[in-house]
Amino acid sequence: MTIETTNRMDATFQRLKAEGRAALIPFLTVGDPDQETTLAIIAEMEAAGADVLELGVPYSDPLADGPVIQRASERALRGRVNLRTCMETALKARQAGSKLPFILFTYYNPVLQMGLEPFFAELAAHEISGLIIPDLPVEESEEMRRRSREAGIGLVPLVAPTSHERIERIVKDASGFIYCVSSLGVTGERSSFFEGVEDFIASVRRSTDLPVAIGFGISSKEQVARFAGICDGVVVGSAIVRKVEEVIPLLEQPENRAAGLLQIREFVSQLRP
């Protein structure tokens, strides 16, 4: 087993900056509909031009997730997918040839149950580049930030439009990139975003030298293009998870599996900025 010696996520953002384009960052619920299919979908997303990949750990009480990702988590949990399974999936994808940086999206309770020391050891051993914990407030994140720095793993904070005077504190000791939340509420596809989103992104940019990405509600090529012009990365989650949900009947039929995977690849490909 190889250990990641340089952070793929940092290197990817540096390369994309030099190329003058933003990262496309798809989100995928691991184990939806099963682990083997997740590995196949990862390969399709990479072929479609994804730059960084968020691997969502299925959770029974996902406070930040809308109904589409909640349903995906329920399907994965029925298959007994857990935090360790998700890390194993990342390593299997790497062993199969994936060069994508992987970011683990998990709530804090599974991390607490595993224990911080073994958790960070496993992240490194399974070649995870970054970490997002949406229910970990900055006021309680000091130990996580310290351990992430020691492990060379980016701890990516969420910054909401309501953060206001907390923005500087949130981004101060961040690593990897800053994740701007485009809308209030949970994840989910949206046709519009809150007024002043551009000013919000600009205020975050003034507070950090790290790359700035935006997510929550972005679902179309036009929306990706809009934000790619003012951000370093664009996260697309629910729209991709919904596409996976739509093609599950095809994925479950051996004779139609390739067609289902192709639909996912084509959907991701047309999003690319």
Rank of each mutant, 00 (worst) to 15 (best):
M1E: 09
M1P: 14
M1Q: 12
I3F: 15
M9L: 15
T12V: 13
F13I: 10
Q14C: 04
R15G: 08
L16N: 01
L16P: 01
A18I: 11
G20A: 12
R21V: 14
A22L: 11
A23G: 05
P26L: 12
L28R: 00
P33A: 06
P33F: 04
T38G: 11
I41N: 09
I42N: 03
A43I: 10
E44L: 03
M45W: 04
A47S: 14
A50G: 09
D51P: 04
V52L: 08
E54T: 04
L55S: 09
S60C: 01
S60H: 09
D61A: 08
D61F: 06
A64P: 04
P67I: 07
Q70R: 14
R71Y: 15
E74R: 13
L77V: 02
R80Q: 12
R80M: 11
R84Y: 11
L91C: 08
A96R: 13
S98L: 10
K99L: 12
L100H: 02
F102D: 03
F102N: 03
I103C: 10
I103R: 10
L104S: 04
L104V: 12
T106L: 07
T106P: 00
Y108T: 14
N109G: 08
V111K: 06
Q113C: 12
M114T: 14
L116S: 05
P118W: 01
F119S: 02
F119L: 01
A121M: 11
E127D: 13
E127Y: 01
I128K: 11
G130E: 01
I132H: 03
I133R: 07
P134K: 04
D135R: 02
E139W: 04
E139I: 08
E140G: 06
S141W: 01
E143S: 00
M144K: 00
R145F: 10
S148C: 07
G154C: 05
G154M: 07
L155F: 15
L155R: 07
L158N: 05
L158E: 08
V159R: 05
T162N: 15
S163F: 02
E165L: 14
E168S: 14
V171L: 07
V171A: 03
K172F: 11
K172Q: 15
I178H: 02
I178P: 01
Y179H: 12
C180W: 00
S183P: 01
V186F: 06
V186C: 03
T187E: 06
S191K: 15
S192F: 03
E195W: 10
G196M: 10
E198A: 15
D199T: 14
D199N: 14
D199S: 15
A202R: 14
S203F: 08
R205Q: 12
S207G: 01
T208Y: 03
L210K: 10
A213D: 00
I214V: 13
G217I: 09
G217P: 06
S219P: 10
S220C: 02
K221V: 02
E222I: 01
E222T: 11
A225C: 02
I230S: 01
I230G: 03
G233R: 05
V236L: 03
V236W: 04
V236P: 09
G237Q: 03
S238T: 07
A239C: 05
K243A: 12
V244E: 06
E246I: 00
E252A: 15
Q253A: 13
A259C: 06
E266W: 04
S269A: 15
Q270C: 12
Q270E: 15
P273R: 02
P273Q: 01
